[in-house]
Design a protein around this nucleic acid. Structure first.
Length: 595
RNA sequence: GGUCUCAUAGCUCAAUUGGAUAGAGCAGCUGCCUUCUAAGCAGCAGGUUGCUGGUUCGACUCCAGCUGGGAUCACCA
């Protein structure tokens, strides 16, 4: 049984015995470093029950625990805080149970299913820094839920339809001269992105020219020939014009090939892809059904609305007067379709930036009004924007940080530092490149995941590329370091086993700290899932690595004369490395054997 | 303007969800490689938690107001 749970139980027992009353909630927290002990009971809330001063309450409980618990060796009371010292034999038991359990931290299947949506880019531009945060977050949240025994379906919706892709198509048709990814050597998404920029450039020039001829701004924006072409192509697309459809699917195909290689490098994956072009009509029936049921209403011009003023929001349009769908309509259809495809899922997690908070509030309310119980189990994993030192990323100002370029830079920097440190002399060129890839991506992922998803964050390229300190590579390094010890132990034929652990009766403070951290793993995992926050896992991995390094620096392992203790330290290092690896895996970060 | 949200060391982030003297990293300064990997460890310095009130044994955390950022409120996606 988990130590914290055990401790809570005996404290509850103490309170019941001493004060003749039961308590549900106990405030148990880690002890501050300046006091002796590992667990601290906050006594203030208990004074109502004990009818004693906080100090006296702590003293009474402390004495009881030392005498009856078999867990607590001694204690001290500072103000209203009862600091408990857990006996080393108990710490050893905790360690032993983790060590002996090969599936520690892996929960058996719960039978619960959820869906996680992430990425969901438009198909007119390459992926950028914002998508990286999105992808790493969504992927990691999915992995965290999997680790807790849930079945998770990773999906995305691809916005392959609409005026944005038609803009790229229009520009390509006018200026492309048949250019392809093959002919240009450009990645497909980059090529299509290039024509999107080309569209914008020409569109602006045409607008300006028209305005100089005396046309009003609004009129110019409509009349610009290139825009007229894009709009015309959208209409032709909707009329299923063969030639337009062909170009559309060709260019989208280029984009998907480009995205695929980027996703592969990022290490993210999807079980199923939803395409807007195939789902955009599905919401319409549901909306019309809603009109019949009276949850929506129709205006005189034929447009359909939902009234959310009772929920503190306003009225939203669901179908245009010409009967066509809006974005919201599509999302209604897609959500319902997903629950049909995966009938066992309890809910959905939408990994989408916080600028769409209002949209999802409305979406979930509407799904609830349509009578879908699962609407309550839908969650918008809303994350903050990634800012640059210069402010927001603006495509028109060319300040967008491209995902592929950024990964290249990070890996390049990792390789540079790896070679400078010169620890890899016996490695092949290929091994150095693989290692650099692992470190560069580890740095990037950790950087984006260590921050609370809800908060907007700053990406300063010069600082973000750091590989020391509170970073992924620091943790990767700690893992590699431990592996080096394990290799040495193996070569010395030191084989740790459960039996020899029984002969270890005392622990060094640094060892206790590491066991304490490792013991927190499952609690942290649950917290991360509850909060939809990989940052909890990231910071746990960092703290564990930090604690281990302190142990590593303080205690030379192989100098130990006591053979049982030596074996324990090898076992202990093994568990630390495994836990680091497991935690990092949930972030999508690999750890090396050597670095 | 309405609604939502954020503000913590010079910079980037934490703070066990109301608990002790608010912690890390980077940047700066000082030590530690003849011993298991110095991408490390130890230490110094750095704070009126945006401001003003309130709630209570206790507030970075909750409430109100103010200041300053950001988002959102389209028959756009």
């Amino acid at each position: 049984m988990n130590l914290d749970i055990k401790l809570r139980k005996v404290i509850q027992e103490a309170v019941l015995t001493l004060f003749n009353q039961s308590v549900e909630q106990l405030q148990l927290q880690p002890t501050n470093i300046e006091f002796e002990g590992s667990h601290t009971l906050v006594c203030f809330p208990l004074t109502r029950i004990s009818k004693l001063k906080p100090e006296e309450t702590g003293l009474a409980i402390g004495n009881y625990l030392v005498e009856h618990s078999g867990i607590v060796a001694r204690f001290n009371v500072v103000k209203g805080f009862l600091n408990l010292v857990i006996s080393d034999s108990v710490w050893m038991q905790v360690f032993e149970s983790i060590y002996a359990d090969p599936s520690y931290g892996i929960t058996s299947p719960t039978g619960k299913e959820i869906m996680v949506e992430y990425s969901s880019p438009n198909t007119n531009k390459p992926l950028h820094l914002g998508h990286l945060r999105n992808n790493f977050l969504g992927y990691s949240v999915a992995e965290i839920y999997k680790a807790l025994g849930h079945t998770v379906h990773k999906v995305q919706i691809i916005n392959d339809r609409g005026i944005h892709i038609c803009k790229s198509m229009a520009a390509w048709k006018l200026f492309g001269n048949g250019e392809t990814p093959e002919s240009s050597g450009l990645k497909g998404d980059k090529l299509v992105g290039k024509y999107y920029v080309e569209f914008d450039r020409n569109y602006k020039a045409q607008c300006k020219q028209l305005e100089e001829q005396g046309v009003s701004k609004e009129e110019a924006e409509k009349q610009a020939p290139i825009m007229k072409l894009a709009v015309q192509m959208l209409q032709q697309w909707e009329q299923k014009d063969t030639e337009t459809l062909k170009l559309w699917s060709t260019m989208n195909g280029w984009v998907y090939a480009g995205f695929d290689s980027t996703y592969k490098r990022m290490g993210v994956d999807f079980e199923k892809l939803y395409y807007e072009s195939t789902t955009y009509l599905l919401g319409k029936d549901e909306v019309l059904r809603g009109v019949e049921q009276g949850v929506f209403f129709k205006k005189e011009d034929g447009s359909v609305w939902v009234d959310l003023t009772a929920d503190g929001l306003d009225q939203k349009v669901l179908l245009r007067s010409d009967g066509t769908s809006v974005y919201m309509t599509q999302d209604i259809g897609t959500a319902i379709l997903r629950f049909r495809d995966f009938p066992k899922i309890e809910g959905q997690v939408y990994t989408v930036g916080n600028e769409q908070e209002y949209h999802f509030k409305v979406l979930f309310l509407i799904l609830g009004k349509l009578g879908y119980e699962w609407a309550k189990k839908c969650y918008h994993l809303s994350y903050g924007m990634v800012d640059l030192p210069t402010g927001k990323m603006k495509s028109r100002e060319g300040t967008v940080v491209d995902a592929d370029d950024l990964m290249d830079e990070m890996v390049e920097e990792a390789e540079k530092q790896t070679r400078e440190l010169g620890k890899i002399e016996d490695s092949t060129e290929q091994e150095i490149r693989d290692l650099s890839e692992m470190i560069g991506l580890g740095a990037l992922k950790f950087f984006l995941l260590k921050v609370d998803p809800k908060k907007r964050m700053l990406f300063d390229p010069s600082e973000s590329i750091q590989l020391q300190g509170h970073t992924g590579p620091f943790i990767q390094y700690t893992h590699a370091r431990i592996k080096s010890i394990l290799r040495k132990a193996d070569s010395l034929n030191i084989q740790p086993d459960v039996a020899s652990l029984k002969n270890v009766t005392s622990l060094e403070p640094a060892e206790r700290e590491v066991i304490f951290k490792i013991n927190q793993y499952s609690t942290k995992l649950q917290e991360a899932a509850r909060e939809y926050s990989p940052a909890v896992v990231a910071n746990f991995a960092y703290e564990l690595a930090k604690e281990y390094n302190q142990f590593y620096q303080a205690i030379p392992i192989f100098n130990e004369a006591d053979h049982a203790k030596l074996k324990f330290r090898i076992a202990f290092s093994q568990v630390a490395a495994d836990t680091i690896k497991k935690a990092m895996r949930l972030l999508g970060i690999q750890v090396p054997e050597k670095m």
